[in-house]
Design a protein around this nucleic acid. Structure first.
Length: 486
RNA sequence: GGUCGGGUGGCCGAGUGGCUAGGCAGAGCUCUGCAAAAGCUCGUACAGCGGUUCGAAUCCGCUCUCGACCUCCA
């Protein structure tokens, strides 16, 4: 079987994934700035990395997955002229900054839990690592890659760029960056226009500030990730991820900080997820086209015809590759919902399949195809396509038109359980209930008796009224079965 | 404007030189008391124009078009 390959933004190629210290794997993913509810586009990134996390665990790696919470220091403008996002929101809502942080951190966890994401191994906060950020700034200053002004400690991009390809991650050269970066007002203190603030000197009115060797400060945006990834994963670790929109600024500057501080780029594999789009446009808070997960689940949004369950949405995300844009529409969501129901129905009947002396399909080839797809840069849509071949096999055997041996059946059970539940993180949403099972058995018996007497009025009444209540009856050769509808 | 990435059947979405995924929707068939479910069959798509090749959705060039980043953003 092939080995896992991941597309590395830094090299722009798919590379064999080889951890620095197997079986250990260190993975850092940029988490949210908790000044607002996460929208569906944000969720896509975290779901994608959840699947990578789960797949690495499935392959037997011991993964330390670090995902930060940015609860301070994230400025309105990347030129460091703006106001701290948390502080701004706090002022608008007349709340303590940490009250905002608490509210949206809880919201974030709740939403990811609904999507059935596993929690990361460590979830550090920026405010909890001010000391580490100060220490890193000291090192960068000592190494000569930063300078102090009246308003901040700035990173000297030009100096670093002489020794390190600063724009490589985003595929830009320094000249282009210079020519296409806007000159902003009030930045005279900076030596170079690409320079960015490591720490910003706080005015007395600034409500989040800390003591430092340079007076009262608050952190810039990029420093916290460098400080926390170094602390928990080391100066060099395996995977660093985030949304594609973080590549040109945030991750580029993170690399710069680590190189200036420790002499090396922090991560060996840079993995970036693409955007969720609505009518072809990126979903973002600033464009006002974002959906909150709660709106999606309830259907309470003007663009939605109905609500969609968290697992239908997760399945929808799995149907596209993480590096492609994914367009969001009612039609696409409904298709995903139906496909998900069909997949889960097959999973449910799989254990009860009758086995025989031979198998008419090649189950181990199917299994290999699924793993080949996942190993090819986590190609979940192709893996899913192969699983649907499995669905067809399951249904055909169930219809008595094909056969499967006990051994192959167990192989298929293991494959379906491991990939669908462990790796893809899907789950059955409609809980089985033993009481209901008994009730349904009785009802189906009554209906069978009615049918035997050719009392189709009664039989159809039972069938139709149950359907209205979300239960579908399926008449088969060996009696009727039932399932929930979504 | 600069840089980068796309344009695939009704819709979503894989696929980087020949074997032409998958899901949803649609049509027909089997099964069924009728349905549903399930299975089978069908539609034979690759923005346009050139070029390379025995052969291109896939490589090259040009054109059109959409988007991302360059400003907070997953």
């Amino acid at each position: 079987m092939t080995a896992l390959k991941l597309y590395n933004t830094f090299s722009r190629e798919k590379e064999d994934f080889k951890p620095l210290n197997p079986p250990l794997v260190g993975m850092y993913v940029c988490g949210p700035t908790v000044y607002n509810s996460v929208h569906l586009g944000n969720c896509r990134t975290f779901v994608s990395f959840d699947i990578l996390f789960r797949y690495l665990l499935h392959l037997g790696y011991k993964v330390r997955y670090v995902r930060n919470i940015t609860d301070a220091g994230h400025l309105e403008s990347d030129a460091d002229e703006g106001e701290d996002k948390i502080a701004k929101k706090a002022r608008l809502e007349q709340l303590e900054p940490m009250e905002i942080v608490q509210r949206y951190t809880i919201d974030f966890h709740k939403v990811l839990d609904q999507f059935n994401n596993l929690p990361p191994s460590i979830e550090p906060t920026a405010t909890g690592h001010i000391m580490e950020q100060i220490e890193m700034t000291e090192k960068i200053l000592q190494n000569g890659y930063a300078y102090e002004t009246d308003d901040a400690i700035y990173f000297n991009v030009e100096k670093l760029a002489k020794q390190f390809p600063y724009g490589k991650l985003s595929g830009r050269n320094l000249e282009d960056l210079y020519n296409n970066t806007r000159e902003l007002d009030g930045q005279e203190a900076k030596k170079g226009k690409l320079d960015f603030a490591l720490l910003i000197k706080a005015k007395p009115t600034h409500i989040m500030q800390w003591s430092s060797p340079w007076g009262r400060i608050f952190p810039g945006w990029h420093l916290e990730c460098s400080a926390m990834s170094s602390k928990y994963l080391g100066e060099e670790f395996d995977i660093h991820g985030g949304g594609m929109d973080l590549v040109p600024t945030h991750h580029t500057n993170e690399i710069a900080q680590n190189v200036a501080c420790c002499g090396k780029s922090p991560a060996r594999y840079w993995v970036h997820t693409n955007m969720l789009t609505v009518n072809g446009q990126k979903m973002s808070k600033s464009l006002g086209n974002s959906f909150l997960p709660a709106e999606l689940f309830s259907g309470n949004h003007k663009l939605l015809e109905k609500g969609y369950s968290p697992m239908s949405v997760r399945f929808f995300m799995l149907q596209a590759h993480y590096r492609s844009t994914l367009d969001f529409s009612n039609e696409a969501l409904q298709a995903a919902e139906k496909a998900f129901v069909r997949l889960m129905a097959a999973v449910k009947i799989l254990p009860s399949l009758k086995t025989g002396a031979s198998t008419s399909s090649n189950i181990s080839a199917l299994k290999n195809s699924v793993y080949e797809a996942l190993n090819d840069d986590l190609n979940t849509p192709v893996a899913l396509a192969h699983l649907f071949d499995g669905v067809r096999i399951i249904n055909t055997v169930n219809d008595g038109k094909e056969t499967i041996t006990e051994e192959d059946k167990q192989l298929l059970v293991k494959l379906f359980n491991e990939i669908i539940f462990d790796v893809f993180g899907l789950k059955e949403e409609l809980q089985e209930n033993k009481n209901l099972d008994g009730v349904m058995k009785t009802i189906l018996e009554i209906r069978a008796e009615a049918k035997a007497k050719k009392d189709f009025v009664t039989a159809d009444k039972i069938r139709n009224e149950l359907l209205e209540n979300g239960i579908q009856i399926k008449d088969g050769k060996e009696g009727a079965t039932w399932s929930f509808t979504l």
